[in-house]
Design a protein around this nucleic acid. Sequence first.
DNA 1: ATCGGTACCTGCACGC
DNA 2: TGCGTGCAGGTACCGA
Length: 257
Amino acid sequence: MPELPEVETTVRALRPHITGRTILEARFFNPRVLGRKPEPDLAGRTIASVGRRGKYILLDLGDDVLSIHLGMTGKLLVNAPPETHTRAYFTLNDATLNFVDPRMFGRIELNPARIAKLGPEPLEVTFEEFRRRLKTRRTRIKALLLDQGFLSGVGNIYADESLHRAGIHPCAIAARLGPDRARRLYKAIRQVLTEAIASGGSSISDYVDAEGRKGWFQIRHRVYQRHGEKCLRCGAIIRRILIAQRGTHYCPKCQKR
DNA sequence: ATCGGTACCTGCACGC
DNA sequence: TGCGTGCAGGTACCGA
């Protein structure tokens, strides 16, 4: 679930609790969370700061960066006891960190190489750079928005919501978007992400931030998971199709190829 | 290099 | 009640 707004909300909630704290003990209950790498020795390391890049939570340990990716169902909870799906548990001086992830798509990794391959941050990239990157890609725009090497942080919900606000069909070929439509998409992505962060993200099933708070942007979704219902803008029936094996929701009247 | 399909996991809602 | 199916916020990897 967690896309950029949910990760950003989690990071903001996390920050005051763990910045400057030292890790006393790190326990990994399932090796899968580490990918194929050996268990890092984190005892005694101090968290200098907490940041985010794309959908990655980054704990600055001085010489190293500990990255936590929440996958589809991950949560990172402060001061909550271990539960059924706890995959890792950190004890700090004066706080605990509980990594809960039922589906185990999440990963905890020291200095991941992936970070360097991420595309620009959607809230930082300029329109000129966004357009330049769009021009060379022949894939469907929805698939491209999910590509973290193109733009980092946008996932299934915010891709669909952005395309609806921009009035662009998810099957439109990226390189064929002219300056006007590219500009509308650029603005829509920024607007949707900014509003979602202000709402604390979207709580679709059980997403909560580090302090256990739900987000509320889901009540403002205009197409995501609304197939069969009326478009709030034009009244047409929202459709659901598959793009890149992901459910894709759009209005057939508002969104043109 | 780019693109699309599959695999990796668990849980839930649904129909029978 | 229980079983099978389809679906879910993500990404790595493979072959074309």
